[in-house]
Amino acid sequence: MNLHVWLLTVRLRALPPPHGMNHIQGLIDHFFLDVEDRVRRVLQPVGPDSMAPAQNLEPYTQPTDFYTVANGGMRVKARGRAPERLVTRQMKVFKEQYFGLGMALDLGLVKGDAEMAGAVWRNFLGARGARGILYQSDADPTQPYFRRSVNLLGGKVEQGGTMTEEQLRAEEAKDDGSGVHDYAPAEADKYVAYPERMATLVAYVRRELKRLDAIPDEVVMGPGKVGSEAAHMDQLKFGRVRDGNPLLDP
């Protein structure tokens, strides 16, 4: 979803002022309201007998075939209120991730496909293999292997504080539960598909940006009347990643 929001913001920047900034602000507001709703539905499922407001019984974003809603349509046992501190902290993490992704993709948009592919690798492929690829022939079969990428900023990690090389290796060996980590030596062959995946996503980004650029401003902004918000949605609808990609043609 972050990628598609960024694609839209790139097109909305080209709208004449103040429409561009107004549309971008509205898009980001709805995006993060949806994110918060999903976080709360995981941490604080509600039921008919709970004290939560009635509107919380329905997700902010209605279920679709494309995106799933956490706990949507499931019978869950209502719990107490989600800790606001936890929700706030998670929202701050998502904010940093969103703006970091946007900056990386903006740089790729200006500097070229190689930079864009790097942004795709870091943000969508988990930066797997950033510290090198360990092959099965070089691995010690008696030792378990686990390594994940740790976000460093000026020598600091997510939790803050500087780290030595030994501390960094220890942090990389900890499973943070995200499911994103380097492949085990026996699975090193999976890296072979990474260049194609990066090229596929870069081609998709370029293709969608070109398509959106060809849509007139008045179509993007819509009629501007209450009840006509969904006008021209068929023209703004995103294409499939695999469509029109020569790398995937039979």
Score class of each variant (00 low, 15 high):
residue 88 T to F: 03
residue 93 V to A: 14
residue 179 G to Q: 04
residue 136 Q to W: 08
residue 140 D to C: 08
residue 144 P to Q: 08
residue 175 D to I: 02
residue 71 N to E: 03
residue 100 G to N: 08
residue 66 F to E: 14
residue 63 P to W: 10
residue 156 K to H: 14
residue 81 R to N: 10
residue 104 A to Y: 01
residue 92 K to T: 13
residue 132 G to I: 03
residue 143 Q to T: 12
residue 97 Q to R: 13
residue 152 L to P: 10
residue 176 D to A: 04
residue 113 D to S: 15
residue 102 G to C: 13
residue 63 P to I: 09
residue 117 A to L: 05
residue 174 K to F: 02
residue 176 D to I: 01
residue 68 T to W: 13
residue 105 L to M: 15
residue 86 L to I: 11
residue 66 F to L: 14
residue 132 G to C: 06
residue 80 G to A: 05
residue 149 S to I: 00
residue 59 P to N: 03
residue 139 A to D: 14
residue 76 V to H: 01
residue 169 R to W: 07
residue 150 V to F: 06
residue 163 M to I: 14
residue 129 G to D: 09
residue 116 M to W: 01
residue 144 P to K: 02
residue 109 L to S: 12
residue 65 D to H: 13
residue 85 R to Q: 11
residue 178 S to D: 03
residue 170 A to E: 14
residue 150 V to S: 08
residue 113 D to G: 05
residue 70 A to M: 10
residue 123 N to V: 00
residue 105 L to Y: 09
residue 109 L to M: 10
residue 120 V to L: 12
residue 58 E to T: 12
residue 83 P to V: 06
residue 168 L to T: 06
residue 87 V to Y: 02
residue 86 L to Y: 04
residue 124 F to A: 07
residue 127 A to D: 15
residue 138 D to E: 15
residue 151 N to D: 15
residue 99 F to K: 06
residue 57 L to F: 01
residue 133 I to F: 11
residue 73 G to F: 11
residue 67 Y to I: 14
residue 163 M to K: 10
residue 164 T to V: 02
residue 135 Y to G: 00
residue 177 G to F: 00
residue 107 L to Y: 08
residue 116 M to Q: 09
residue 176 D to R: 01
residue 91 M to G: 08
